[in-house]
């Protein structure tokens, strides 16, 4: 019972992260994905040089931006993927494993993003 109550308390918080991640994924991810994933590698647009990118991410604001860009969409994924597994495959009985993998993955990605951004030259 205690477990259930704590889950009820954390649910609105997780939903807020999902929602914020959805906003980031909608407003920021497409342009990044288009440039880095298609336009730059296919030579449609000249990519920024290594030195320029290093200079860009040297700014603390850019690091905060990249941290948000990496972290929030992962929580968005965790929430959606969790419910897709629940309903899509009807495996709600695996609830604990799914939660652990989804939110664990999001936390791991957030930690990795923090570590990488902190240690950038």
């Amino acid at each position: 019972m205690a477990g259930k109550e704590s889950q009820v308390r954390i649910e609105p918080f997780l939903w807020t992260l999902f929602s914020a991640g959805g906003v980031v994924a909608a407003f920021l991810v497409p342009v990044h994905l288009f440039l880095w994933g298609l336009a730059f590698p296919l030579g449609w647009i000249q990519p920024p040089a290594y030195e320029r990118i290093v200079a860009l991410v040297a700014h603390p604001a850019a690091r905060v931006y990249l941290f948000v860009l990496c972290s929030l969409p992962l929580f968005h994924w965790a929430h959606r993927f969790r419910y897709t597994l629940y309903d899509g495959l009807q495996i709600k009985h695996l609830n604990e494993v799914i939660n652990f993998c989804c939110y664990g993955g999001a936390l791991l990605g957030t930690a990795l993003a923090g570590y990488l951004l902190w240690n950038l030259p």
Partner: peptide, 22 residues
Amino acid sequence: ELSSIFVALFVVITLLQLRALS
């Protein structure tokens, strides 16, 4: 709902990029 997998994939590739940068 499955579009979220590709959103997560984008983050993974971005993390790889940050690692390469460092």
